[in-house]
Design a protein around this nucleic acid. Sequence first.
DNA 1: GCGGCAAGTGGTAGCGCTACCATGACGTTG
DNA 2: CAACGTCATGGTAGCGCTACCACTTGCCGC
Lengths: 342, 342
Amino acid sequence: MIKPRSRRGGGRPTIADVARKAGVGAITVSRALRDPGRVSEDLRRQIESAVNELGYVPDPNARALASARAEVFGVLVPSLTNNVFAEVVRGIYDSLSDGPFRIQLGNTHYSGLEEERLLQVFGPQRPAALIVAGIDQTPASRKLLETAGCPVVQVMETGPDPVDMMVGFSHFEGGKAAAEHLIEAGYRRIGFIGARMDPRSQRRLAGYRAAMEAAGLFDARLTTTTPVPSSVTLGRELFRDALAKLPSLDAVFCNNDDIALGVLFECHRASIAVPKTIGIVGFNDLDMMEVAFPSVTSVRTYRYEIGRRAVAMALAAIEGNRPESRVVDLGFELKRRESTAR
Amino acid sequence: MIKPRSRRGGGRPTIADVARKAGVGAITVSRALRDPGRVSEDLRRQIESAVNELGYVPDPNARALASARAEVFGVLVPSLTNNVFAEVVRGIYDSLSDGPFRIQLGNTHYSGLEEERLLQVFGPQRPAALIVAGIDQTPASRKLLETAGCPVVQVMETGPDPVDMMVGFSHFEGGKAAAEHLIEAGYRRIGFIGARMDPRSQRRLAGYRAAMEAAGLFDARLTTTTPVPSSVTLGRELFRDALAKLPSLDAVFCNNDDIALGVLFECHRASIAVPKTIGIVGFNDLDMMEVAFPSVTSVRTYRYEIGRRAVAMALAAIEGNRPESRVVDLGFELKRRESTAR
DNA sequence: GCGGCAAGTGGTAGCGCTACCATGACGTTG
DNA sequence: CAACGTCATGGTAGCGCTACCACTTGCCGC
């Protein structure tokens, strides 16, 4: 008798087809696939060959419905084009590409409300884990994370009060180290140039300010910021503004490397000597900072590693062994280069 | 009587809860949510308020299982950190953020086999549409795309034989335009510097070669390529190699802007005058090319727009009205700047 | 006045899988 | 040797939703 294929399913083999072919129960096939150790050697081989012959692939939707748990990692980042987050995301993908987990990526556009909305979309899918950038969730987002019923990793920053786990570093300390380096190098009128000014930028600014105040060098006029999204073009413009406002400026700590690059190009264009007349420090240490001329001092951060570590921690938590320390600080490293070597 | 909550579902309201509260059948709730026009005004309002009161959110997994169609766009790109693809992806996200569709992003690492593997993973999810970068799928990948049973958009390139739909531009023409521009500007020993050399880079190289041969200027020694992934650092190194090999070089067409930037920095470092001694043309026209000093001529491509258009076409196809022209060429524009103005 | 048709609604039967419990075949122990 | 685990396997009953068909109205045309 010809088995009447369902009108709905596109005719792909189901677990029942495999079970029939292998002469076992459907549940045994399910087990053989998910936890081979619990099925005898014999049946396992039979099932395996039936799977291969039929080209059976489990339906992730049915699996998610039945087990009330989807093999999905939800990932929330503020930007897809900012290289910094792209690196984190790459680390996450590379760590997850072997396993069964899919990734659902959300772009919050640096908006707390958008983050809330995305968490509301992710929740009903019952993801296996959630990875979110930053530690400044809105109260509503925080509640959504706390009640998600899965491991949660906050990345990019460390802070005192993790929802669950955290991997990152201290932006405050990074900003402080950058400013201290400029002070040590002999610069005195050290400006801060920042764009977008998201919470991480704010903390870098705070670190800068702490160092400047400690050295008795802080002056509000040294700070030039804008909420506008960061770009190389903007870096150039902000630097011109800063210089117009305060011609005595002798160094700048830039919020990020795009800004620093804009400053560097403007110095070339205006024939301002770097590092002699102006010292430049960036943040994140993109690949090109080392190649730039002059090479640019920057605070190296370990974005890719943050992504990998976040996945490792989430995976461990899924398997029931949460790491003993819920907050991992991967630190940073100040890379001293020509742009501050005077 | 207390309704015994299932042991599996986490206690979230289901469609049956909403139906009971609104005093209607479950199926009517389903319709009210998916196609409000088919439910009377009265019931619609009742259902709506029941949904709000209970905080009901449909379970996407159950929905996908029952309807054999997930509200998911599968997106396959060769790299997450390459700004070019990041822009395409951003366009896709921005176009999809309003609607019900989720996005599942896969990173093929420029590997045909990896692409196949990812398509095999995406298939069983029954995505609503697939967007893949490039037109050089392996035969197996092509078959998977053809039998996916959903709209497929190939992006970044145009070509003669779309699986379904295409949005992009001609890399051959882009490379040709770049070389022709250098020839017109009076350069004669025009090199090509390329890294990674994926199919798109190959076609740019072919365009360059066509222009050079047409002008009687082609010389195999002018071409410097490597399969190594592209970076600013690598651009610098390749340029040094090229110059060592052929000191008479008077211009370079770079595979992409990272390489061009590496060349520019090396020229600064080695005090080579740009554009006088060496002319430089990049590809893609990243934001910073305009700000660089000297500003760098580049072939502007419309990555973000490609992403948006791909989604628009897929969405139209889902609704049953495929666009009349299945291949959309968004073109490019050669941006002439200081680096070739001699 | 009756068949026919469209619009609005609901019941039933799955979608493909897994949680839960039951079963039977083996030891193992005192 | 009875009582009791343990292991491997299977049956049943859903998970939450939608496709499909059936039913009830009310209105039209002849």
